[in-house]
Design a protein around this nucleic acid. Structure first.
Lengths: 243, 243
DNA sequence: CCGTGATACTGGTCTATACCAGATAAGTGG
DNA sequence: CCACTTATCTGGTATAGACCAGTATCACGG
């Protein structure tokens, strides 16, 4: 990632000068992640301006991924982004641990349902085909960073509903069903998180996020699972290698 | 992309209710892209609130990628995202035309320089190695959607500086140097656009963007070019296939 | 007919203030 | 010592203005 430290000149808007001074303090000072910033009211006073302008500056730093907010608790310095390769099968947990992070997975819901028109279009299923929906929330260092909806082809994965989804799904498919996910179609786009994803991550509606959709098939081309991930925008960096 | 129309209940904040009503009007009414919304002052009056709150609602829709702003001209409905596959070599222009869009490329600068420590770390070059920097701006339907910095290995591409960079770089390398870019390392992360990228795209500092970095090598593993792209967040959807 | 300058309109920035709801810390009673 | 209440601090939402700096328009003068 480039350093990309934008430093504003004297003539630039006040909220950008405040942004830059805060950014500098973050770089210089206690760079340790998850440190709490002074409250908005204190910042406004310190920079001799109002809360509205202070919040503009904070929103800039948030958009850049330097800080994040915890609802009604305050602003905190963002930890480094998790490097994530959606084309490879590996465990979220293993990946996080390798990068010195503490991962945790929470299964929010496991439910039998049927494919919507939208899902059918994404997967090649017919509308109404049976699927198992698994909703999970994942944490890094106890901060929730993503929620996902996993749609499993229940016809090809009998009894899938009974397993423990707090562990790696990829390992489950490999060990219990001898399924290798060799074909994938991945789609990613930045978007705002709205409900229900926003509340599941305890952030305000409109928080910047990244949506990662992944449709996986086995070697024979049979649809196995569709994964719809909603990440907080400052928590990840996608990395893909093409040989 | 999921429909994902968040509809707020009666008890929810005013700016979310305004957001939803505007979103509805966009869906129902003149969905045609690039239509201008009423001015902030008119919206504030129409929803019986203030400009600040109206702007909050507009910022939500902007974050979701539904609308975008043109500096001091107004708010406009966003056109569909360009589907973009950074792992494949094809022309930006061809890709855009295929999707019914009008592309344009502008070369902002061509300059001989040397590799910075940052670039060296990304490419495997030594700091100080000669590179040619090409800065380009690309448009869709006359809206600037990305700026990029291309760093070319001038040792392996003699005379590269003299060519026309408004055309496809990939075709140039293939036709003039018989170079195929078969190895790529791609990194993507959401971030805010700050100067100088923000001003190059005529947006305010802090506008949500997506940074796509691509390091390409030839069949022998020799570094050829590093491409650093800054996209407006609402203009693209990344799509990658893994066979 | 074209250029030009005045003008209205747009979003961009900023002040000052208010109240609310959730999170937290301090205090209190068992 | 713990459980519960209370007070305080936090960001979240909202009002009501103000001035500035570009954009677009239109009438006017050449």
């Amino acid at each position: 990632m480039p350093e990309n430290i934008a430093t504003s000149e004297a003539g630039s808007p006040l909220y950008l000068r405040v942004r830059d001074q805060l950014a500098e303090q973050i770089e210089r000072g206690e760079v340790t992640a998850n440190i709490k910033l002074p409250s908005e009211r204190v910042l406004a006073e310190r920079f001799e301006t109002t809360r509205v302008t202070a919040r503009l500056a904070l929103a800039q730093l948030e958009a850049e991924g330097r800080i994040y907010r915890s609802n009604r608790r305050g602003w905190f310095v963002s930890p480094p982004r998790l490097i994530y390769n959606p084309t490879e099968d590996y465990s979220f947990s293993d990946n996080a641990v390798t990068q010195g992070r503490l991962p945790r997975t929470e299964t929010l819901e496991v439910r039998c349902t049927v494919a919507s028109a939208w899902l059918a279009g994404k997967t090649g299923l017919e509308t109404g085909d049976p699927v198992v929906l698994v909703r999970r929330r994942r944490y890094l260092d106890e901060r929730p960073v993503l929620v996902e909806n996993i749609y499993l082809n229940s016809r090809h994965l009998p009894g899938i509903k009974g397993f423990d989804f707090n562990r790696s799904l990829w390992k489950l498919l490999r060990d219990q069903y001898s399924v290798d996910l060799v074909q994938k179609k991945i789609e990613m786009f930045p978007t705002a998180l709205v409900d229900p994803q926003a509340s599941a991550l305890s952030v305000n509606a409109g928080t910047a996020g990244l949506c990662v959709n992944r449709c996986s098939r086995d070697a024979a081309g049979v649809f196995v699972e569709f994964d719809e991930e909603f990440w907080l925008h400052d928590t990840l960096s996608i990395q893909v290698n093409v040989a």
